[in-house]
Simulated scan of single mutants.
Amino acid sequence: MDGRAGEPVRRYEVTEVEPVGAELGASAQQPPSSGAGRGMFGVQGTGDTSGFGGLQRRRAVELDSPRPFGGEFDEVVDALEEAYTGFNDAIERIVVDRGELTLHIVPERIAEVCQAMRDDPALRFELCSSVSGVDYLGSDGRRLHVTYHLTSLTFRRRVRLEAAVTAEVPHLPSVTQVYPTADWQERETYDMFGVVFDGHPNLTRILMPDDWEGFPQRKDYPLGGVPVEYKGAEIPPPDQRRSYQ
């Protein structure tokens, strides 16, 4: 067909070009991982767990925070030092980060410190709102950390205690005699991370079956899973995707 009057006729040649970056031939294809992030449990480099290398993990604070800590934090630390005679032997380091005071406690002393935090009139941290676990796989020998969030209803303050143990000897004293609310929370931490709370009245699994082997929230626990079927497609289990293989 001719073009408009006075204009040359334009002709186009159509060629097939394979899409760049596409991986064809799979019904449930996952995007390939980059060198910066290999996925959740095989992550290297930036700490990206998405598989695309776009996230940057903030470097963990490991050093003591210098005094003055600022505001009420100095009052809390001074009151604990005065109330608890074993302060220097029990406190490994004190960190103030992102508006939160964290006291790193020698594992054997965690229940004693909680007792002082609750009973001293200048502290009065009456509530333990949370006991939870963290696995810092590859950090050092004491990779399993347990965190305790304490709240003073009297003074409207919050503080975070943290104790670290090894995966080979994951024992901590139970704080249930000080904070009864820690009962089920310690059971969940035991169930998911394998931390044994000595002195707990009934340390049994709370989420997984009693005969379950392993601790699902440890970073070296296998992903497992089952394939999920969709109409015309099937998603493989996590340990068969990308770099999990």
Rank of each mutant, 00 (worst) to 15 (best):
M1I: 05
D2L: 14
R4A: 15
E7G: 01
E16P: 09
V20W: 10
G21I: 06
E23I: 15
E23W: 15
A26G: 09
Q30V: 12
Q30S: 12
Q30R: 14
P32T: 12
S34T: 15
R38V: 02
M40A: 11
F41D: 07
G45V: 09
T46W: 04
S50L: 10
S50D: 11
G51C: 06
F52R: 14
R57F: 10
R58M: 07
R59M: 09
L63H: 12
S65R: 01
S65T: 15
S65P: 06
P66L: 06
D74V: 00
E75T: 14
V77K: 01
E81V: 05
A83C: 01
E92G: 12
V95C: 04
R98D: 13
R98F: 14
R98H: 14
E100M: 11
T102R: 11
H104I: 05
V106R: 12
P107T: 04
R109A: 15
I110L: 10
A111Y: 06
Q115H: 14
A116E: 10
M117I: 01
M117S: 04
D119F: 11
D120Q: 00
D120E: 09
L123M: 00
S129E: 09
V131P: 01
V131N: 00
S132F: 13
S132L: 11
V134R: 02
D140W: 10
R142V: 00
R142K: 13
R143M: 10
R143Q: 14
L153K: 06
R157F: 01
V159S: 00
V159G: 00
R160W: 01
R160I: 03
E162K: 15
V165H: 02
V169K: 13
P170I: 02
H171V: 11
V175S: 01
Q177F: 10
Q177D: 15
P180C: 03
T181I: 02
A182I: 09
A182L: 08
Q185W: 11
T189G: 07
T189P: 12
T189Q: 08
T189D: 07
Y190C: 02
M192C: 04
M192Q: 01
V196L: 09
F197C: 00
P201R: 06
P201L: 00
I206R: 04
E213R: 13
G214A: 09
F215L: 03
Q217W: 15
Q217A: 06
R218P: 03
K219E: 15
K219L: 09
D220C: 02
L223S: 04
G224D: 00
G224S: 03
G225L: 03
V226C: 08
V226N: 13
P227H: 03
V228A: 07
G232Y: 01
E234I: 14
E234A: 14
I235S: 11
I235L: 15
